[in-house]
Write a protein that binds this DNA or RNA. Sequence first.
RNA 1: GGCGGCGUAGCCAAGUGGUAAGGCAGUGGACUGCAAAUCCACUAUGCAUCGGUUCAAAUCCGAUCGCCGCCUCCA
Length: 478
Amino acid sequence: MMKLYNSLTRQKEEFEPLSKPHVGVYVCGPTVYGHSHLGHGKSYISFDVLIRYLRHLGYNVRYIQNITDVGHLTDDADAGEDKIEKQARLEKLEPMQIAEKYTKSYFDDMDALCILRPDVSPRASGHIPEQIELIKVLIENGHAYEVDGYVYYSVSSFPAYGKLSGRKLDELVAGARVSIDRGKRDPKDFALWKKAGDDHILKWNSPWGWGYPGWHLECSAMAMRYIGETLDIHGGGLENIFPHHESEIAQSEGATGKQFVRFWLHHNMVTVDGRKMGKSLGNFILLRDIFQKFHPMVVRLYILRSHYRSPLDFSDMGLDSAKSGLGRLIAFRTRLGDQLTEITVEPSAAIAVLIESTKAAFHESMNDDLNTPGALASIFELVRAGNSALDSNDTPEDKAALAGILDELAGEILGLDLTCSDSSSADIGGLCGVLVEVRAVLRENRLFEAADRMRDSLEEIGYAARDLPGGKSEINRK
RNA sequence: GGCGGCGUAGCCAAGUGGUAAGGCAGUGGACUGCAAAUCCACUAUGCAUCGGUUCAAAUCCGAUCGCCGCCUCCA
């Protein structure tokens, strides 16, 4: 049985979906006004592993992740500027061009990281009617009220407000928004709909006039649209527990009277020098920049090496270390070869035992709140023991069996593509083949000086030549 | 100030009552023409500090120190 840490109850709980085998998962997606940074990588890799593992366990998962293309303000009062509109002004583009541009950029980066696409990626701008309907219900229920083109959620009408974040209503102190609030009955109330002035480009007509939805609303509306009134799992970043997720609960449960989310999952942050990586601090590191220096799979392994609920402090040294580790995994996978489908013979008893113990250890870790560091430890143990076994007795059956388990655990579940290391074209492959032959001739004739010079030269242009037992060599891109 | 979390080897990181996984780096050895890769061995009498509970604590309790997150947009 899989246990997940539920932020709502603050403990690990056995996961059981509401209506097996179906599992509805909603994860807070990005606001598309800039390229994705390492923090996005950590978030979506964490939940990607959740989705992959749930599917591996046989669940029929529906995975929804929004794209926020309705610009929200840089603060919750009216003081801030719409983030998408601001970026549009800076780049001299239409706001929706900005949204499209960075949505594409987001998916490009996520694809590179081998993150499976969500089943639905609903755009907030495409679900304004759903959001308006939700507001209408909340007004009818007495949870919301309109003031001059604005609609606010009445926090005091929902006594459970604070149950997720552990905040008590009377301790909630309103910040700067108090002074700017327009007719709010209570400083704690938050906006469901905001009036748009002439200078606001992104706006829609509504029963309350031209405006745009509040920033908590889209998740409630779209999650319920595509999953239903109760979600099995809702994921997001720790920093969104309050006020975002707390408000989502208030909106959704206020409207339906039913529990909105059964399991709340929150991942921790990426830090730089111990400080949170964030747009406001300006210390974020873009994935596309990291990819210049490190293969996306290095980044994926780097992230998977720490638990999703732990902070991850960014460092080049950490990525270097992950790179070495990935190299080890790839070397092992390469050694196993590629003909597993043709092999039907059983592996040796020793390998069968190794595979079973690896599986058991892997699942034990994963079942414990997705302990990917532990799961990786079992895979590295498989690599060590597997290499050792093959060193003494190398059989196609054993290699096929090892390839099968490695592809299942590391590939299918953890999403580590260990075959994508070599991006060389067929031409390069052919050239390498020729060089391999040349090297064999040189070594055969004990022309070691020339052979060494060849290896050094290859090294300089990014290729590694290594000699195998039996006089043969192999040449691969590093 | 309120709420929450963290402090484990040179670096990263699991473990949350039964005597310290794993990765990277390092050292020695096997293999090799030399390397690389791989394998074997070694590398924390100790888990921020001090007390306490217990047959037994990195794990539970208390105190202290240090760091971080949320309370304002943020993955």
